[in-house]
Structures are given as C-alpha cells and as structure tokens.
Design a protein around this nucleic acid. Structure first.
Length: 533
DNA sequence: ATCTGTGGCGCG
DNA sequence: AAAGCGCGCCACAGAT
C-alpha cells in the first residue's frame, strides 16, 4: 500500500537496480484511490487535496509534519536517520495504512475496486516509462526542426509581401506586425478586406485570400518549431541522453493517462518525426496499437449487430459505414476519400456531433447532413439506442461509467453550470474513451509483469492511449513481441466479450517503423485462441 | 520573475 | 465559424 506509488516504485527501482522486482509488485495506491473516488466531485480540493497529509487528516485524524523530510536528501545510509526522522517514516506508513483501510469500503460502495486494482497493477508500468525513458536521436530531430524553421522563415517572407500595404514599419523598414498575435493579424486582414473573427487554420483557408493562406502556412511551421524545438530538446536527460517524461496515470477525467515534460503523446504523426525515436544499437522498438479501439468498444457496449459482425469478421467498418452513408460500394482501394470521410464522421457522430458539425466536416449544407445523419442511425439503430440510453442513465444517476466500473460524476460540471448538451456528449463519450483506457492499462500491467517474469530485456517506453511502444534487445525481440500481442488481446477479452480487440504490431529500428520487410502487414485477425487467453 | 486564462493546434 | 470527447504546450496579455 503506497501513496503515489509510481514515485516510490521509481525510487526503489533506481536505488536498488531492481526494476524486475518492482514490475511484479502488487500495489494499492491511496492517492489513486482518492482520485477515483473523487473524479468529478469536489474538484475544489485538488492540489493539496490529494496529498497524504490531507488524506491522513481527513480519514485518520493524523497530523503529518512533512517539513522533516528535508533531512532525507543526500543521506548515504538509513543509519544516518535521526530518531525524529524514523518516527516520521513510521507515521507515514501508519497513515497510509489507515487511509487505505478507510478508503476500501468507499471503493466497494462505489464499485471502484476493480478499477483500483487495474490502476494499482499499472503503477509499475508507469514508473518504468518514466525511469527508462524514450531514446531520441537528437541530431536527426534537430535537423527536422531546423528544416521546419527555414520553411517558417520562407513563409514569413511571403507574409511580409502579402501584408506590405497594411503593416507598419520600424526605422529599418522591418514590419512591426506580429504574426503570432491573433488580434493584430485580424485587424491587418481586415484592412486587406478579409473579415474574420478567428485565425484558426480552417477559417484562414476557407476565406481564400492569399495573405490568409500564407499565414496558415507560417503558423503550421511555427507550431512545430515552438512546440518541438529547443524547449522540447531541453528535456533530454544529461546522463541518460533520453527523454524521461512525466506520466499522470489519471490525467483525464475519462481515465486516460496524460503526459508532459515533454508530452510524448502528441508527437507529430509524420514519419520524419517518429523515426527520430530510435532504439540503441542491438535493440529494436516494438510498436503495437489497438486497431479501431473506440469503435470496437462502441460495438461491444451497443451490441449493434452490423458493427459486431463487421469487426468480428475482420472487415473494414469505416468502408461499411461509408457505403451506407454514401449509398454506393466503398472499399479502401476504390473509394479512399469516401472512406476517409466516413472515418471522420464515425467518431464525431458516435459522440453526439450535430447536424451543423457534420455539415462542416463534410463541406455540405445542413439539409444534406440531416439526410446522412438519418441514414447513419437508420443503418445502425443500436448505436443510437445505446448512446441515448447512456446519456439518459448517466444524467439520472449523476455519473457515467466504463466497463471496468470507473466513474465520472457530474457534480462539479453541474455546479459549474455546464449546459445539458455538453453533459450529454460527455456521458456518451466517457464510457467509450474510459473503457479504452481501462483496456490499455490492463495490457500495460500484464506486459510489464510478463517481461520481468520471463527475464526479458524489454521495457515499455511509451503509451499513447491505444498504442504501446516497447524497446527490447534484438535477442529478446521475438519473445517480447509475442507477449505484447498476447496481452493486448487478453486485456481486450477481459472487458469485451462480443468483439475481439485487434492489434497492429510493428518491429523495427524506430517508432512505428517496420524492420526488414515481411511483405504483408502482420495483423493477426480475430484469432479465437488469442481471445481466450 | 512568476502565475493564470485564452486561443490555437499537436496527438488519440 | 458556440456546441464530438480527452489532453499539454506555445505565445500572448494582464495580473501579482
């Protein structure tokens, strides 16, 4: 039983070079338990509200003095601890136990024991992500960002030209227009005869003015430079030369994790960026992601026969949806655009996108969108039924929940005066997104434990919601790959009974890159044997 | 010199 | 051009 177990596990693993032991730990975490109990209710007690000190007072009436910890830093041996410091340590342990004893019945009352176990089991995996880090080829990365910088400069030349008639100049003839400042840019555009209320890319491109187009291009490159440039590289650890991000296992109210310093969950998808994340010599990266994760969860929860049949047969659901919506046969090969549109719509519609949003997505009028929406829900009536029921039930009970029992209470949101439509969409989305998070966390825990159990030289190095990245010694790569595949599927089967979770696997020198070419994609479709495990 | 909120945009 | 959900980081502005 630990409070903020990921921290302690990380310290234990590092100090005693004992990650294999840590990876198999069975953990209960009082901080996570508290966050699960509070999710969406009483968010005004955040920050200090989840510290052990606060919980000890609230649950056990114990006063903890944390200032004494100052003496702990830099000691070489436990013998150096004073009696007062030892007493503090003892009180810390006692408080944690007492808090957990009080939390247990509350977890049981709220049906949170299962998800608490999932989180506890995943704690060692998150500790490992931070401790081991993710290797980045800094030179290749810097080259890529520099390229982006020069493209940004080039767009800037174009911008100076486009805005030459409306921009003020300084003594040296340089424009004083700040292209990073929305308000300045909007007034400058207005002088060019373009009246916009936002500088979002979509609006800039829609207005069709060359100055707006140039601005969109500049911002695209500038976004990369500012977000993934020097500040990003500053996170490389001086000793390990790797990135050691901070993961928050409960980063999102849905149960998803979040990541920062740096955020390794929003790296541009282009291979030019991802290929900079490389395995050291003699090692490989295994990239594994759930294929169509959210739609599979939606299929499971809605029991829609078409969704279930299509996905269980390993067929293309987006293509199927496209053929229904556009009333013609669609495959990935023959109608890639229609399929791509259906894919975008699929996610939007499933979570409450309206007619207006759909029209915008498709670039058509609302009447057309209305018809498509009707066609969608006529073809998949159980999807609508499930989503409506999810919203209704959640609003009545005051919380939404995932298949593992994770809950999001609407207490805070109601108090903040969030409108009903927004609550409805959250109620529809949270069970899907959250169940997906449950699944991935179960998989992480099993994979980590299995690596340790089998003594493999393999470590989890990243997780991006429905994707896991593992670094392994070449000699252990095949065994590691099998473990990843098996446990991602078994985690799926743990929560989903009606549809298999399909996994895409890639093994190669870098993130998302396949090694020597096995010609076809190594996608093992719906293997019943794998489901049982 | 920090902190906080906003608009915008990278990812799932 | 306010309504699909969930994040973190950037530049900026206004505050302390």
């Amino acid at each position: 039983v630990m409070h903020n177990a990921t921290f302690d596990l990380k310290m234990l693993a590092a100090q005693y070079d004992a990650y294999d032991c840590v990876a198999r730990a069975q953990v209960a975490d009082t901080q996570i338990a508290e966050m699960l109990l509070r999710n969406g209710r009483k968010s005004d007690v955040v920050m200090q509200g989840f510290a052990l000190k606060a919980l000890a007072e609230r649950y056990a009436g114990m006063e903890l003095d944390k200032t004494i910890r100052q003496g702990f830093y830099g000691i070489q041996s436990l013998d150096e601890l004073s009696p007062a410091e030892l007493h503090y340590a003892q009180r810390d342990v006692e408080a944690t136990w007492k808090v957990y004893a009080q939390q247990l019945p509350e977890l049981e009352r709220d049906g949170l024991l299962r998800v608490a176990a999932i989180e506890g089991a995943a704690a060692p995996a998150f500790a490992g992500l931070e401790l081991f880090g993710f290797g980045l080829d800094a030179d290749a990365w810097r080259a890529r960002v520099t390229e982006e910088q020069s493209q940004s400069q080039a767009s800037r030349q174009q911008l100076d030209w486009e805005f030459r008639t409306v921009a003020d100049r300084d003594l040296f003839g340089q424009t004083t227009l700040n292209y990073d400042h929305d308000e300045e840019v909007l007034t400058a555009l207005k002088k060019l005869g373009v009246s916009l209320r936002t500088v979002r890319r979509e609006a800039l491109l829609a207005c069709g003015h060359p100055a707006a187009r140039a601005l969109a291009e500049y911002r695209e490159h500038q976004k990369i430079v500012s977000t993934y440039g020097e500040g990003f590289l500053a996170h490389l650890h001086p000793e390990t030369g790797r990135l050691h991000p901070r993961f928050k296992a409960l980063g999102a109210s849905t149960g998803r994790a979040a990541c920062g310093e740096p955020n390794l969950q929003n790296i541009p998808g282009e291979s030019a960026f991802r290929e900079c994340f490389r395995a050291p010599p003699g090692r490989v990266l295994i990239t594994a992601d759930y294929a169509g994760a959210e739609l599979r969860v939606l299929a499971e929860m809605s029991e829609d026969p078409v969704f279930l049949r299509t996905l269980s047969a390993g067929e293309d659901l987006h293509a199927r949806v496209a053929s229904v919506m556009f009333r013609k046969p669609v495959t990935k090969q023959t109608e890639p655009e229609l399929r791509a549109r259906a894919k975008a719509i699929n996610f939007g519609l499933a979570y409450g996108m309206g007619v207006g949003g759909l029209a915008r997505q498709l670039g058509t009028d609302e009447a057309d969108a209305e018809g498509l929406l009707a066609a969608y829900f006529k073809a998949f009536p159980k999807i609508r039924g499930f989503l409506d029921a999810a919203a209704k039930t959640a609003l009545r009970r005051g919380y939404a929940e995932t298949l593992a029992g994770r809950k999001l209470w609407f207490t805070d949101m109601r108090r903040d005066g969030r409108d009903e439509g927004s609550l409805v969409r959250i109620a529809k989305n949270m069970p899907i997104q959250g169940t997906n998070a449950d699944l991935t966390k179960i998989a992480m825990a099993r994979i980590c434990a299995a690596f340790a159990q089998e003594g493999l030289d393999a470590r989890l190095v990243n997780m991006v919601h429905d994707e896991l990245v593992v670094e392994a010694a070449e000699s252990d790569a095949d065994a590691a790959r099998r473990i990843v595949d098996r446990h991602m599927r078994s985690a799926g089967a743990e929560l989903l009974r009606r549809v298999p979770m399909d996994v895409d696997l890639q093994v190669g020198p870098s993130w998302g890159k396949r090694g020597a070419p096995p010609d076809a994609r190594e996608r093992v479709a719906a293997d019943p044997a794998a489901q049982r495990m």
